[in-house]
């Protein structure tokens, strides 16, 4: 990031593995969680972020700085977000979504959720389970029922012809 000219206030954020980060308040308050802490008067000392590790926080701060440097231009912000997320692997996305949620950053949350959803677009149930490491906890009977439910469910159900 370019050197900030006349930075008014800098905050110190602490990750859950005790890494410290300096970030301009104007960028950090993109996080509603941090903003609330600042408003509650925590800004003087160190702001502890118990649910975010150092690696993820570093990445989030890169995002905060990058996005807040862009003037109010939704197109450009969007393309920054796309670029920011383009090189993140799947595991990182999981960390990011948790962090974005915890930090209450709706734009980042939106973008990361969309990116994760994109991964499973047009994929089979089995593929999604493998990719996300999710165990099938349905009984075979339940699974069959769920499959059926979403197919031709409405055959024979009352129709709304003429009212």
């Amino acid at each position: 990031m370019a050197a900030e000219t006349g930075t008014p206030t800098t905050l110190t954020l602490k990750s859950n593995d005790d890494e410290l980060f300096s970030v301009a308040e104007s960028a950090a308050i993109l996080s509603v969680t941090i903003r609330n802490m600042v408003e509650d008067g925590c800004a003087g000392g160190v702001i502890p972020l118990d649910n975010v590790d150092g690696k993820t926080l570093a990445s989030v701060i890169t995002y905060m700085n990058g996005i807040s440097a862009i003037p109010a231009d939704e197109e450009k912000k969007k393309s920054y977000r796309d670029k920011f997320l383009s090189d993140k692997d799947f595991e990182t996305l999981a960390d990011m979504v948790l962090a974005a949620n915890y930090l209450n950053m709706s734009c980042l949350m939106d973008a990361v959720s969309a990116k994760i959803a994109q991964v499973m677009e047009k994929k089979s149930v089995g593929w999604v389970r493998r990719k996300f490491g999710i165990e099938n906890d349905y009984t075979p009977e339940e699974e069959a029922a769920v499959k059926e439910e979403h197919k031709w469910t409405f055959e024979g159900v009352e129709t709304d012809d003429d009212n």
Partner: peptide, 9 residues
């Protein structure tokens, strides 16, 4: 409706 509901409970 076609995929996610089947993944897990």
């Amino acid at each position: 409706l076609t995929t996610a509901v089947e993944v897990c409970t």
